[in-house]
Amino acid sequence: MKATIPQPRRGSGSRADARFQAVIVALASIVLVTALAYSVVLLLNGASAFGREGLGFVFGSNWDPANGHFQAFPFIAGTFFTAIGALVIAVPLALAASLFIAEYAPDWLANPVAYLIELLAAIPSVVYGLWGIFVLIPATLPFQKWLASSLGWSAPIGPGLFSAMLLLAVMIIPFIAAISRDVIKLVPNDQREAAFALGATKWEVIRYAVLPYARAGILGGVILGLGRAIGETLAVTMVIGNANRFPQNLLSPTATMSSIIASNFGEASSPEFVSSLIGIGFVLLVVALVVNFLARIVIARLTPQGTV
């Protein structure tokens, strides 16, 4: 048989392959290095904040830029308050929406609802913030005033912990709902049929067959939602009031780690101030990492055998 196809020199394919692979590995290594570089860069730039304040940077409460005191505990606490509060509001609603889409609604209704919820997720943070200041806060202020006067709290100004929780809840609902819906749809039908065959009602099927099977994924989604809430910046910055202290009550202005960085960065004149803000960024990074790994562990641990 005559060889009529162009025959490159033996091994040239391998050399080109090796070059291509080297390029691909180099690109992937950028991802590898980037994640590590993040922590190094923030640690180096924020190190002096830890140097000056020591553990007080994380555990102390005296944030007084005018007098050179930078202790970030109120913001760390503020981050957790807002995020947990948002979760309390968001989780039941997100779960309801995901059950509606995956279990109750017929396709002609489920698909548009799912699309609308996706739409909610596509709206940028800053748009939520704008809506929060000019619509949500004025709309809830009468309720806030009523609540404050009946509980004997000082009069609310509008921006504050409550407004931030509410807005944050709206923002993370689509995120949690989307994950829950996917997980619920993955529950094999034989689980449902087994329960139905025992004479269970629709709700009992969900309660005893679907939710236990999907719980790991749902909980993982909730924790990822928590991660979202913790890192969320602009919307929170716009409605939380950015006060440098602990909130006295549910309605008073306070700040989160991300909101204090975003709102004070423009005014941070001294190097101490800037490094303190970056130091807070480092704490935020660590918290985000921990929360994300927690989500993975939960999913890995709680997933029933045999699920995908």
Partner: peptide, 10 residues
């Protein structure tokens, strides 16, 4: 050792 799998498959 000097044979390229690409050539083999060709």
């Amino acid at each position: 050792s000097d044979v390229d799998p690409v050539d083999v498959r060709r």
